[in-house]
Simulated scan of single mutants.
Amino acid sequence: MSSALRPLAIALSLALSMSSAWASENANADRLRQAFTNWQQGKGTVFDLLAPNATWTVAGSSPVSGVYKSKADLMEQAVRPISARLATPISPTVQSIVAEDDVVVVLWSGQATALDRKPYNNTYLWHMTFTQGQITEVKAFLDTYALNDLMRRVEPAQQ
């Protein structure tokens, strides 16, 4: 290759590699956006994107705060105890989604009605790592005061 064409080839290579990274992060953000839309429409949840061996960390001090080493553990030990106290499913509203490389961060709010007919409203920030289109790691931040109130105030329904 001539020395005159070498810089052009390098620039083209860099542009192509960067566009594939952007396409990947946009694809993950798009997957997440669609999962939230499905959740709003009652057609699934974001948890559908979790890999079976995903690690999910719930920050703070609440009955469900801690580290879950699988999707099954998260669903059984965190999601189910919360859902058992709700008369309606959580309805999510996305405020923003930011993607960089394989990481997607979503800020969202959720509203539901608890079994005692009082509102359950919370705000969440989930920092998610994607691998091959699946979520493999999450650090979840939320208003643990609101969650603690729900968990203490409302007896779970028998499931």
Rank of each mutant, 00 (worst) to 15 (best):
N121A: 11
P119W: 13
L86V: 07
V104T: 11
S83R: 11
S91D: 02
A112I: 03
F130A: 12
S96H: 14
D101H: 12
V98N: 07
A140W: 12
Q95C: 00
S91F: 07
A114T: 00
D116W: 03
T93D: 04
T136W: 05
P92A: 02
V103L: 15
W126N: 14
T93S: 06
Q111F: 11
F141D: 15
T131N: 11
L142I: 04
D116S: 08
T123D: 15
T93L: 03
Q132C: 05
W108D: 00
M128C: 13
R117D: 15
L125C: 14
V79K: 03
D102Y: 05
A87Y: 11
L107K: 09
P89G: 10
H127P: 07
D143P: 14
V98I: 09
S83F: 14
M128D: 08
R117P: 04
A114R: 13
T88N: 05
V103E: 12
V106T: 12
V104L: 14
R117K: 11
T88S: 13
P119D: 04
V138G: 06
I97P: 11
N122K: 08
D116I: 09
S109N: 15
Q134I: 02
P89C: 10
W108N: 01
V138W: 06
A112M: 14
L107I: 10
Q111S: 05
L125Q: 13
Q111G: 11
D101N: 12
P89N: 01
A112D: 04
R117L: 10
L107P: 03
Y120D: 02
I135R: 03
V105L: 13
Q134T: 10
T113V: 14
L107Q: 09
D116N: 13
P81V: 01
G133C: 01
A99L: 02
L125H: 09
Q132W: 06
P92G: 01
A112E: 08
L125I: 14
T123C: 12
D143K: 03
V138R: 02
S109E: 12
I90G: 00
A140P: 13
L86A: 08
P81R: 06
Q95H: 15
E137M: 03
T113C: 05
S83L: 09
A114E: 02
D102G: 12
I82S: 05
A114S: 01
M128T: 12
K139P: 02
Y120F: 15
T136A: 07
T129H: 14
V104E: 08
K139G: 01
Y120G: 12
I82F: 03
V79N: 05
I82P: 13
L86I: 09
I135P: 09
T88V: 06
F141S: 15
T144I: 11
Y124P: 01
N121V: 09
E137G: 07
I90Y: 08
G133F: 13
D143F: 09
G110N: 05
G133E: 06
Q134S: 14
T93A: 01
K139W: 04
Q111L: 10
K139E: 00
P81F: 09
D102V: 10
V138P: 06
T136Y: 06
V103D: 05
I82H: 07
R80G: 03
D116Y: 00
M128N: 13
T129P: 01
N122Q: 07
V106D: 02
V79P: 03
A112Q: 10
L142Y: 06
R117G: 06
A114N: 04
H127W: 15
T136E: 07
I97T: 10
L125T: 14
E100L: 11
G133K: 01
S83C: 02
M128Y: 12
V94A: 10
V94S: 15
